[in-house]
Nucleic acid binder design. Structure first.
Length: 207
DNA sequence: TCTGACACGTT
DNA sequence: GAACGTGTCAG
């Protein structure tokens, strides 16, 4: 996931489908992002490798984000999928916009907290949700990610460009003149160095 | 490694 | 048309 000073949305974002809730009970949904470990990683070769094994965690307290629709009855939450697309990540430790502050080049994993809420304790800016003993927490290992400020892996970049509508302008079938100019430069460079391979392979070699 | 300006696309 | 969300690129 990319971190920026001003906050960057997660993509892909966390989306869940809930079942088994009490249809008549109010629930708040909280997403927290916790460190997978204290280690700092580097992209070396074609893998993430531990660069430094820190003896003491440099992470702050657990970071949490309330779903923007809340609280709702269990029957409402179970109607469809629940998305946290509005959640933003930042590496700015002094962030004042309620984004989740993370450290670059670290591994994290999101946790979903389903919090039963009584009618008398409806959350508000002055009354935060508390994760009590009745809170149900779910962790999905496949949602683990590494934070970066600059993409390290071309395949991930390409995956995001192909699936994120806001990055449509960078798709190879797009009409971005900037990309077309780069393609011509790459093609020229490729022909000078490796004229036997087709053009599509040259782009992989050069990136 | 990180930042900010930038062009382009979505909402 | 404005605000916002993207990856790129130069420094």
């Amino acid at each position: 996931m990319v971190l920026t000073k001003g906050g960057r949305r997660m993509f892909p974002y966390c989306r869940y489908r809930l079942t088994g809730l009490d249809p008549n009970q109010l629930y708040s949904l909280i997403l927290s992002i916790v460190p997978f470990g204290p280690d700092r990683y580097h992209w070396i070769g074609n893998n993430w490798k531990v660069l430094t094994e820190l003896k003491h965690s440099c992470q702050g307290p657990c970071q949490a984000f309330s779903h923007h629709h809340e609280p709702y009855l269990g029957s409402v939450w179970m109607c469809g999928s629940v998305s946290f697309y509005k959640l933003k990540l930042t590496n700015h430790s002094q962030d004042m916009d309620e984004h989740i502050v993370l450290h670059s080049l670290h591994r994290y994993i999101p946790r979903l907290h389903v919090v039963p809420v009584s009618d008398k304790q409806v959350p508000s800016p002055d009354n935060c949700v508390t994760l009590g003993p009745e809170t149900m927490t779910f962790i999905f290992p496949q949602t683990e990610f590494v934070t970066v400020t600059t993409y390290q892996n071309f395949q991930i970049t390409q995956l995001k460009i192909n699936h994120n509508p806001f990055a449509k302008g960078f798709r190879e079938d797009g009409k971005n003149p900037r990309l077309q100019r780069l393609s011509k430069i790459e093609f020229f460079f490729f022909r000078q160095n490796c004229p036997a391979l087709p053009y599509t392979d040259s782009k992989k070699l050069l990136t």
